[in-house]
Write a protein that binds this DNA or RNA. Structure first.
Lengths: 146, 146
DNA sequence: TTAGAACATTTCTATATAGAATAATTGAAG
DNA sequence: CTTCAATTATTCTATATAGAAATGTTCTAA
């Protein structure tokens, strides 16, 4: 990026990643950033395809594939071919992964409070509206040829 | 992260990186994301130490060191030991790197317009004020033990 | 003045991420 | 039906990023 908006986003992303990973480590939770994001959406709705996870996380499909590899290794996820459409792989949470949710979300909540320190509820909402608009713009832009 | 705010940031970061790299490639500019961020601040003020670059980009110092390696290889930067304080390495732009600035910034500008599509100037400013507040919070937080 | 603390950078190791190429499956048009 | 295009996922390769440990330099307090 590198003009203001994008430069800010990049910096914030880096800091929040480092801080969040530190918080997780301090709470003995062995989940990395990329893994956490996949769990985050699977906890909301289990049994998704790789593409669907890609769509919801904005990770590239090949990235999802690789991260899922690691999580299968660690016993957090399982892969199953969709019998209805054998091109698709359905990713599902193991009981172990399900058991991590509450502790993880507690730390998430801590992180969120830090992130929005000094923000009123209105400010948070307005800020997230802006983020949502930008996310939509970029999502659309990426699909188009430019 | 993974509660709303941080999750948005992460997603936007990913999309903007992919889009921006595509734009650069289309304009035959051989500069990667991390490299661009270092150039961005050196173009504003040349001859910085590794720590100073780390501070201004929010990249970890070891990351800066590695990225600089690659850029020295490619003839964009040069390293010099500071004679006044031999612990420090001063990073400077080569003429080649200086010559890339205007073309790079043109693409940056394009990216920025896309990023803020549909935003009024007031909205941009308010949004960036929010970003700045969060960046400050996180920068402070990282320095503290928590 | 010198031993140990503090500072600045680099190296080592590991994970995250994505583009390009590849493989497998399904859909669609003749 | 059958061939070719589209879809879905994976593998291969390369860069980005950071924590921990190692290296070299400077500062400080006795």
């Amino acid at each position: 990026m590198e003009t203001k908006g994008g430069f800010y986003i990049t910096q914030i992303k880096q800091l929040q990643d480092r801080i969040f990973e530190r918080l997780l480590a301090q709470n003995d939770i062995q989940i990395s950033g990329g893994q956490g994001r996949i769990l985050f959406i699977l906890w909301k709705s289990d049994h998704l395809t790789v593409s669907e996870i890609s769509r919801q996380t904005s990770l590239a499909v090949n990235t999802v594939s690789i991260v899922v590899d690691g999580m299968v290794q660690k016993g957090m996820l399982e892969r199953n071919i969709n019998p209805t459409n054998r091109r698709q792989t359905i990713i599902s949470l193991t009981d172990y992964a399900k058991s991590l949710q509450s502790r993880y979300e507690e730390v998430s909540q801590q992180m969120n409070i830090l992130f929005y320190q000094g923000f009123s509820l209105e400010e948070q909402q307005q800020f997230e509206k802006y983020l949502d608009r930008i996310l939509n713009t970029l999502t659309t832009a990426e699909k188009e040829d430019f």
